[in-house]
Design a protein around this nucleic acid. Structure first.
Lengths: 213, 213
DNA sequence: CCACGTTTTCGATTCTAAGGCGAAAACCTC
DNA sequence: GAGGTTTTCGCCTTAGAATCGAAAACGTGG
């Protein structure tokens, strides 16, 4: 989340093929690492994004002609950077809004769209939002974050109650200063610890008599 | 679904490493195919499972030591065989209940468990069940299928209503003959066409005033 | 310092959809 | 035709999300 919109970190290719186009960070898998270790290493090498709040496998992209001249199979990952973490970026690296991508290399546009869809889906049934938010946040800020990521406006009232009911949200006791035009100071919240929690993947067709603790 | 339980197709390895153990069907990726084409080819070569009702990527397994002596990165797939399709099996191939796997090779047990979890999750919020069911089925048969796959008993009444409400189920007009002990003849249903439909991945936090068409 | 606009928060109500129960329907066998 | 079996359907309950509006807590400007 950057400047009110969902953005993706791209870097401009210097070498052929597709030199000059923008691509997702990545690189080759080494002998002593699995794919997740590899993508974390690639990110740490090229940009200062060592604290990814969340990393998960997205999909394998393996069309034989996806990279001209060479057979390359890519395992795509979805990684989330908290909005309060603004890493130093090299010149050839930049954030781009997911809805307005530049000229991308290979099949990376398709990968980005897939990642966006995965994020949208998971936002609603997990607490994945915590990976995008700052450690402490107001409900309004969280609402803007969800709205931008989901692509439609969500109700702040409902967002707070849904997340609270699920036990994902807890008040910190602090309050944020009101804006320049006044207004009641907003209470600050944080997500409860415990990593990604799937709210209820089997939401429907539950076992009988399981009134959901 | 075989004999009332969720089963997985395994074949017994003839060569080292792990000779004699049971493994998931698979093989090497060729130059002119993507991973999905590859897994379909592997299945068609080794067993008569050409009509998979559903195939989807599961995850990449890439621990450096997952296969001794050689670096092998595997893209695991989840494929579903309808319960009315009983393919001819070679001698070294067999169905095994997911809950009672034999001695498996490599990390294949973990892969199977991951696949089972994915199936369970998707059964509740997609119409993926159609890929396990016969073209026409009774609600009772569908209930048994869901119960076995999910691992707990579901109510036939509720199952029918939930699926119908979502527009995933439609009556064929035919009826199945009653069992040997009598009983009202069951109506036959089919899943509505249209491939896999995600019921509502954004189930919560919907756009305002969207009462779900 | 007091009325007014602003923003957040909280409670009450409505609405949707799943869960549960029992009666009725449609078949068998004896 | 009586009794047992299985399926089907309607009604009711319950949970949780959506909506609405009032109250709280702050600024600003007269």
């Amino acid at each position: 989340m950057r400047q009110g919109s969902l953005q993706v970190l791209l870097w401009q290719r210097a070498l052929a093929p597709h030199s000059g186009r923008w691509s997702l960070p990545g690189g080759r898998l080494c002998a002593d690492e699995d794919v997740e270790a590899s993508i974390r290493r690639q990110l740490a090498e090229k940009v200062d994004v060592r604290q990814l709040a969340h990393v998960e496998q997205l999909a394998v992209f393996s069309a034989p002609d996806r990279v001209p001249g060479e057979r390359v199979v890519a395992t795509a990952f979805l990684g989330l950077v908290p909005c309060d973490n603004d890493p130093e970026l090299p010149n050839d690296t930049s954030w781009y809004p997911v809805e307005a991508l530049p000229d991308t290399a290979f099949d990376h546009e398709a990968i980005v769209l897939r990642a966006r869809n995965r994020l949208r889906a998971k936002l609603s049934y997990t607490n994945l939002g915590f990976a995008l938010a700052a450690p402490e946040f107001t409900v309004s800020a969280l609402r803007e974050l969800y709205s931008a990521a989901l692509g439609y406006r969500v109700s702040a009232t409902n967002l707070q109650r849904v997340l609270s009911r699920r036990g994902l949200l807890e008040p910190t006791g602090h309050t944020a200063p009101p804006g320049p035009s006044g207004g009641r100071p907003a209470a600050l919240f944080r997500f409860t610890a415990g990593g990604i929690l799937v709210t209820d993947p089997f939401a429907v067709l539950r076992p009988p008599g399981s009134a959901r603790a």
